[in-house]
Design a protein around this nucleic acid. Sequence first.
DNA 1: GGGGTGGATTCATCTGATGATTGCGCCTAC
DNA 2: GTAGGCGCAATCATCAGATGAATCCACCCC
Lengths: 240, 240
Amino acid sequence: MSRTDRVVDGITAMILDGSLAPGDRLPVEKDLAATLGVSRGSLREGVRALSVLGVVDSRQGDGTYVTSLDPSLLVAPLGLVVELQGAGHALHVHTVRRMLETEVAGLAASNAAGAGEALARARAALDSSAATLAARTSPAGGAAEDPADHEALLEADIAFHRALAEAAANPVLGALVEALAGRTARHRLWRGIAQAGADERTQDEHEAVLDAVLAGDTERARVRMAAHLLEVEDFLRAHG
Amino acid sequence: MSRTDRVVDGITAMILDGSLAPGDRLPVEKDLAATLGVSRGSLREGVRALSVLGVVDSRQGDGTYVTSLDPSLLVAPLGLVVELQGAGHALHVHTVRRMLETEVAGLAASNAAGAGEALARARAALDSSAATLAARTSPAGGAAEDPADHEALLEADIAFHRALAEAAANPVLGALVEALAGRTARHRLWRGIAQAGADERTQDEHEAVLDAVLAGDTERARVRMAAHLLEVEDFLRAHG
DNA sequence: GGGGTGGATTCATCTGATGATTGCGCCTAC
DNA sequence: GTAGGCGCAATCATCAGATGAATCCACCCC
């Protein structure tokens, strides 16, 4: 086992056995290096690795702290990994995303009564994208999309799905969906959707999902979300 | 942006734009450090971080290579992250696991015809655990479980779910399930199940799932897997 | 032709030093 | 007495150089 691995294992072990809790500050580099029996260089490599994983956070002039260990933080690096998959497993990734988002819609519908704020954000996101679609200069299906419109629709799409995930009230589920539907992946998708002139249809599908969620109709919400993402998958197959 | 981040971004960018493909060898540390404009120490921190993420692999005396970038490799660090969640989000994690495994069962049933080998391994895993249950000295429900039996049941459980995931033929899905149902998490679960004397029942549930999968009955496979994992979740709530 | 051996290459690790940033206590001015 | 500014100490960030360990590969001997 390399020195760096010893560092990573040592620090995670300290977190697991409770000697380091979220928010706690790690010993200074020199002391921690001595404790773990490695040099400062090796220690820094290990700490940096944990930093990339979102487990700790180093601040110059201050110290190194254990993060909150929130799922959203820790799953973030998975997004990078999804990017690296490239086109090879894009369809597989999206299949999993569809499964998870379907459950998100179902849970959000079940929780509709207690998730008013999150659902209001979902509503606002759809209003925003509707306004963009109504106000844009070029007609639907035009090849010369306004890049600003494109960006606005992408933002609204992300906001909509994120708000639904919050309404589902499962942070692990939300974090995974966020990681799987990465920004660049979505960027590619939306390009294809816009080129096919299907952005208005996407808007309608989003509206249908939200209607079912707001009505607390779990099954309809699930089916509509699944159908929506199957459409997206078709775009992946056809234009991806 | 720190130097190390520059290193991570630089290397991932090279992979994304195709100048580095899976299996390729990275330039030697000195050259790469010069290219990225950082010292060797900073370069090593960045490379080590990517190594922990499973993106690259350094071998002393040889060189540093881009890994296969298989989902199973890249999702592995997620397992560590799940461990760190501790009891806080255990139920949330398992809820997501249930969702994914339900889909695994469904896909495995759909693919039953073309996944004979994987399903044979699932069958073998169940035979193994059945033999363990039949041969064990202490009667069911005994508090004094044989640790060896406990370990054997755990192994068979892991093998069963893994074989099903292979039959589902979606590597991303399989990798996620593997990460979510980590070894130590399962260890805790099985302890609770054994103490409650429910290991025979678990065996029956596994058998029911496999029957439906082998019959190619997607819906029955899904329902039975979901029901099985709901049982497990009840143990989490009661004894976790 | 096959197997062993040596050198060259490359990563692994350590040591020491310097700069940048932050936090905190003290000190001064009002 | 209080508020604001200043300086010092602590800490991480980064660099440079040197040594050890593992691997690969070509060469040589048999």
